[in-house]
Design a binder for these strands. Structure first.
Lengths: 217, 217
DNA sequence: CATGTAACAATGAAAGTCAAGTTGTAAAGT
DNA sequence: ACTTTACAACTTGACTTTCATTGTTACATG
């Protein structure tokens, strides 16, 4: 576990570009690995346990994932890809920029706040994951910012929104930071769990972020 | 170091209510203790070192702070009090709600992002402090939220602002989360370091938070 | 009267040692 | 294509020992 996949740049790009599991056994292994990680965390995560779960020899795992790193890496990439493609689908389904933003954000919160592995690690192995989400989250935030900004720019490009480029990056970063904050510290008075509350939140604080119409200008 | 002062409720209230150091020696001890913590962190923080720094016997320290906890506690309370009173002064000096919000927030960011001990601990002893700022930051955020909300309510009470109570809490929490995020992950594209940039940020994203005039209502 | 010295038991952290578990590779078997 | 077995290198955990620190006390000093 020396290579630290999270510190890397263009994390999201790698997640989307990483080749999909062709083999069906690869799929089963990764499924078992995910369950294993969800049930026991990463500190006690052994290839042996994964093999037992897949009902396969330990050596077989090594045939598909020569190093432990690569398995874990593939796991994270798969989860990230799953997340990103789902969000993209949600966003694509909405017609207006406002709706895309609101629904996309709500989905992100639901997905991440309900992510078993993520929450498991936050709870039982914070020292493993917290630095990546805080003091070393510079690249993560940058990646998330770029991704969100991309979506906003798409709206601008489609003529449904008019927003200066610098403001796009700022708005994107503020959104990214708020999401991360709500994931790592779920306690909140923000009504993120009721549909009406979320709608209200979005209207009050989210929509203004990407609105061309500004006060005082 | 068993008592964990940060987990406590109404942290800010305790910080402001805690009695000021009457003695001059108390002051010197705490000054030395702060420097010691800034230079060596909390893990290697010993009463012996503090005593050497004050050029005083170890026993003397114990006369003023019977337990190590109490010294550290007093330290944190003093820093927190220093912070809060300064912010309050900054806010009080501004005439309009918008200016109070903007200048207050800018000061918070500058103070916290420049705080030697805080940054030292984040850098060298994250496992000690990160959980308090993340997974267990519920009470911290609640305290900060209440404090900020108090300031906003004061403006509402003075008739300079009209904002529903629920919205006050939400706006306050969003501000608190953003500040915390920018403190623990300083890397940002937000122009927080140039005066013009900060002003622009405030106008774009901050002022709308407390503005009665809303889009779509 | 506030501080210093010296001595002390109790607690805690750090370092070292050893046994067990885990990783990653290879060869031969089904 | 997978399994079994075997193996060396490395990591981890448990344990013990040692040392530093805490917190307390009695007495000395100026």
């Amino acid at each position: 576990m020396r290579g630290d996949t999270l510190d890397d740049d263009n994390l999201l790009k790698r997640a989307l570009d990483s080749e999909l599991p062709d083999d069906e056994t690869t799929e089963r292994i990764m499924g078992a690995a995910l369950q294993q990680a969800e049930d026991f965390g990463l500190r006690r995560f052994t290839i042996d346990d994964v093999a037992r779960r897949v009902r396969v020899s330990r050596v077989t795992i090594y045939r598909y994932f020569p190093k432990k790193d690569q398995l874990l890496n593939a796991l994270l990439m798969r989860e990230l890809r799953r997340f990103l493609t789902k969000v993209d689908a949600v966003i694509a389904a909405e017609p207006t920029p406002e709706a895309k933003l609101v629904e996309g954000l709500i989905f992100c919160l639901d997905f991440l706040r309900g992510h078993r592995l993520l929450n498991r690690l936050l709870r039982t192995e914070p020292e493993l994951i917290l630095p990546h989400l805080t003091t070393r989250a510079g690249t993560l935030i940058a990646a998330a910012r770029a991704w969100i900004a991309g979506h906003i720019r798409a709206e601008v490009g489609a003529g449904r929104l008019a927003l200066p480029d610098e403001d796009i990056e700022c708005a994107a970063e503020l959104i990214a930071r708020t999401v991360i904050s709500l994931v790592i510290t779920p306690d909140t008075v923000l009504p993120v769990d009721s549909p009406e509350g979320r709608r209200r939140l979005a209207d009050l604080y989210l929509t203004p972020l990407v609105q061309t119409l500004r006060p005082k200008t």
